[in-house]
């Protein structure tokens, strides 16, 4: 089956991102396809590449990036949610003439249409709320 996930929770504060990740690993292990993970609301904070957790803790944003690299998952950061919250890639940082960007390269900044598209083109769209 083709799955897509919607993640509303930021890393560390809420369990949502962690639960979604374990679910993603389990569905891939069962031979399903993970088409897209759509990060919405505070979930967009999962897209940072500047997370520095203590050494004995997991780097949640990096873990998503690794999963996407290995299984060709489309990690989408909702652009409207992200810009408000200061999560930007290099293109947007340049557009708004800001001094830096912070998004990981495994993540794609895109619009809400990608959430609807995930619902249309996946057999299952599962929300992990915060």
């Amino acid at each position: 089956m083709i799955y897509s996930l919607a993640v509303y929770g930021p890393p560390y504060t809420y369990q949502a991102s962690d639960t979604a990740f374990h679910f993603a690993e389990a569905l891939l292990a069962k031979g399903h396809e993970l088409h897209r993970v759509f990060f919405y609301h505070d979930g967009v904070y999962n897209g940072t590449r500047l997370s520095v957790p203590p050494q004995d803790e997991i780097n949640i944003p990096a873990r998503w990036s690794e999963l996407a690299g290995k299984h060709e998952v489309d990690l989408v950061i909702c652009v409207a949610s992200a810009l408000r919250r200061g999560v930007l890639n290099a293109t947007e940082a340049e557009r708004y003439e800001l001094d830096s960007d912070n998004m990981g390269t495994a993540f794609n900044l895109s619009g809400l249409g990608q959430l609807i598209d995930a619902g249309i083109h996946s057999d299952r769209l599962i929300t992990f709320g915060a």
């Binding site: 509303y8 919405y40 609301h41 409207a80 949610s81 619009g111 809400l112 249409g113 959430l115 609807i116 598209d117 619902g119 249309i120």
Partner: peptide
């Protein structure tokens, strides 16, 4: 919380396709 507002944004987007 912003769930209602951001949910409404999703509704408007969804209505264009489905």
């Amino acid at each position: 919380t912003s769930f209602g507002k951001e949910g409404l944004d999703a509704v408007l987007m969804g209505s264009a396709f489905v």
